[in-house]
Amino acid sequence: MQVQSSFKEDKGKLYLVPTPIGNLEDITLRAKRILQEADYIAAEDTRTSGIMLDKIGIHNKMVAFHKFNSKQKAPELVQMMKEGTVIAEISDAGMPVISDPGYILVQECIKADIPVVPLPGPSAFATALIASGFDAQPFTYYGFLPRKASEQKPYFEAMNQAHATSIFYEAPHRLTKTLTTLASVLDDNRQIVCARELTKIHEEFIRGSIKEVLAHFEQVDPRGEFVVLISPNTDETPKVSMDELVKRVDQLVATGTSKKDAIKQVAKQNGVSKNDLYDFYHQG
């Protein structure tokens, strides 16, 4: 067992600092102070973050930490923190670790008994969720999905059965193709929301059935990064047999998900017992 105190003064720390997802006024007083006081700011893209930091008056030393160098860079940063350096890790926008490689640095810090101090702040999927009109408890966040339709379909089939709001991110140039794949799976009566440019001047929520929203984007070019939300399945009548659930587990496993996590995910999304699905899966 490990007990972490975030207030040790005898060694360095890792601060996880959220940054605005659009509107710079969303930076918090505490976040700004930590960014000013840290010895270094670890950023996904030092150029993009440098522009943002300059606009809010932060002129601190930066170090690049992104998915291409994270495994090599993390030990170096950990060693610096062991020697007393304070590092603030930021994403390009929003929460560190969520859809960025910050978790690798967090894991290494935990192993090295370096305090990890999270700050609250902006997150695109949470911002979209509270304005979606869908029930926020429970929800499942998927991040960015695979790009191929064949690899997306198992996720969409699970979302179609889920009694929770489902959320994922999509880039504008892939949105229409992804919605077309979703429309081939999702029940016609299910509602979706596509939220774009959150907290910015052109913030927009497009709400409707999957067919209505798809028709909209066949007429209007998608612009900006999108958060896509799917309403929960409110039909209490079981639609899927255990044999079909086993197929869905295998589909997720084929995308790289572990059997344990795939069983847990499919069971949760379809309202069945995880243990029952585990037993049924392994009895074959």
Rank of each mutant, 00 (worst) to 15 (best):
G284N: 15
A267F: 10
K13Q: 09
E197V: 02
A158D: 15
F156T: 00
Y141N: 12
A64L: 14
S166K: 07
K264N: 08
P120Y: 10
L245R: 01
K8A: 04
S123T: 13
T180Q: 14
E44A: 01
Y103M: 04
L252F: 12
A162W: 04
L214M: 11
R47N: 08
Y155D: 04
A267L: 09
L24S: 04
K32T: 06
V220A: 07
Q137M: 12
D113R: 13
H216M: 05
V228G: 01
L14Y: 11
E83P: 08
L16K: 00
R30I: 01
L186I: 09
K13H: 09
R147W: 04
T176C: 02
K239P: 04
P118K: 12
I90Q: 06
H163T: 10
K259I: 12
Q79D: 13
T85L: 12
E37G: 01
Y142K: 11
L24Q: 07
G102D: 00
H173V: 01
A164G: 07
S5M: 13
A128I: 05
A183E: 13
K82S: 02
T181H: 03
S132Q: 04
L175H: 10
K239M: 15
V227P: 02
I21D: 04
A215C: 09
P138Q: 09
Q72E: 14
A43M: 09
A74G: 11
I130L: 13
A74P: 11
P18H: 03
D113I: 03
A162S: 14
S5P: 03
K268F: 11
A131I: 03
M95W: 04
P115S: 09
A149F: 01
P232E: 09
L214E: 10
